[in-house]
Amino acid sequence: MQVTLKIQRFNPEKDSAPYWKEYTIEAEPTDRVLDGLLKIKLEQDGTLTMRSSCAHGICGSDAMRINGVNRLACKSLFQEVGNNVTVEPIAGLPVIKDLVVDMEPFMEHYRSVLPFFINDDPPPEKERLQSEEDRLKFEETTKCILCGCCTTSCPTFWATDAYVGPAAIVQAHRFIFDSRDQGSAQRLEILADPDGVWRCRTIFNCTNACPREIKVTEAIAEVKKEILFSKL
């Protein structure tokens, strides 16, 4: 079938502002939007630039706004998004070129929440024991691939990028609720900052945007509760 893609272009070496460009291709309904973009790049316009790697929703490279909604281009089939598709870079982060944005501010927020295992007790010879029940408490948030769909769909993040963002909170949640980890207190303190969890207004854009179907808003709420009950 014929598919028309209206893509936001921007070349930092030539353009003063982004502009729209339309391309038409032949595609199957089961083709991914990424397949379409790569086809345009191979056959029509080699300057079209985007990030991509695994092409099946596991690496998180190709987060984009497709028809106005944050999605992974490799998980969006034309049979879902239709044959008149708008493609733009994710919002809230500086655009470098075409569909590529600067992920550094996002990564910095991620690094700031101590997103690593903390346990200073000498480890046992074999594995630390953990019940399946305890593991399930944080299993959701281990699925995060740092694609940025959640944070860049959050209106609060659009208003102020000082907000640590849903992704960072999800990554912190993964450790706060891991029974083997001992760093909860430090992370909860970091997140209790005005630009931490409190900036979340429970808008739910993040939960809708997450390609891994993580219940992001719920995870953030669990962290808020945890902070509240540990302070009171």
Binding site: S112, I118, Q186, W198
Partner: peptide, 22 residues
């Protein structure tokens, strides 16, 4: 006792914000 990691950024732990939220 857990070790403090050098990466802890801005001063935080705002009890005011917790109470404000509540």
């Amino acid at each position: 006792m857990t070790t403090r990691y050098a990466r802890t950024p801005k001063p935080s732990g705002s009890t005011f914000e917790v109470l404000s939220w509540f």
